[in-house]
Nucleic acid binder design. Structure first.
Lengths: 122, 122
DNA sequence: GCCCAAGCTTACTTTCAAGTAAGTACCCTA
DNA sequence: TAGGGTACTTACTTGAAAGTAAGCTTGGGC
């Protein structure tokens, strides 16, 4: 309930704040797709086939409460709702890029036994 | 079981990889404390009073499996165990710093109704 | 011979995020 | 009047993460 107050929760560690706003299972993906362009609910559904409507709606609402995305409703029939990154949401993009870069290095697909940091000399 | 294989899990999104390694409730705090200096188990316990021994041990094990921290056992009695950031773990520090910076701005302690991005012009 | 410290492990319980499946509202078209 | 498209909501279930509380090991001091 009252998820609108989430942002006001006092978090001791600022890193946890970032993990909180990005921590939902589909949130990084949603934000990443919105970096390119505004998307409709149904477009996001198609672009993220594994997500359910419930989780997509819930995560979009949380991102909206955290003011990272903007929701625009066009009162037409059938309804049309557009989601886009807010100006504030855009400030997260460089953070996501840094995380992405480290994550890619960390992953190292293909090498099962030496996935981590094989190239760093001790 | 076999938590050593965790790093080999294929994650679609590299950002999720970072969230995974930092995502435990106490992990950012643990890593942050280890940036300064090597710490003993009991020191970490005192520095993070709310953490239980179980969770501290579990998170340290996971961080060790992800090769971010190094565990050194001194076979003395009573036992002495030291944890420190590995060279690889240090590569995460700049990422944490960027996250920390954004998180601090996001938090804005004191202002309850305008916690988020009050200064960005539309 | 008993307790203590340090660094854990184990068994059990609670909490919460996520998934499943179904239903709702709106008007339009056939 | 039946069905379709869009954007959801609601009730219920599952599973993983975290918390609680207790136990274990080892040798040294009292």
């Amino acid at each position: 309930m009252e998820s609108g107050a989430e942002a006001a929760v006092e978090r001791k560690c600022p890193i946890e704040t970032v993990i909180h706003v990005l921590g939902g299972k589909w949130k990084p993906m949603i934000l990443w797709l919105l970096v390119d362009s505004t998307k409709r609910f149904s477009e996001l559904e198609k672009l993220i086939p594994e997500v359910t409507q419930k989780m997509l709606a819930q995560h979009l609402r949380e991102l909206e409460n955290d003011r990272l995305v903007t929701r625009t409703v066009y009162p037409s029939v059938p309804p049309k709702v557009e989601y886009s990154l807010s100006e504030y949401g855009k400030t997260l993009v460089p953070v996501m890029e840094v995380m992405c870069e480290w994550g890619e290095t960390h992953q190292r697909p293909g090498s099962k036994q030496a996935v981590l940091a094989p190239a760093i000399p001790m």
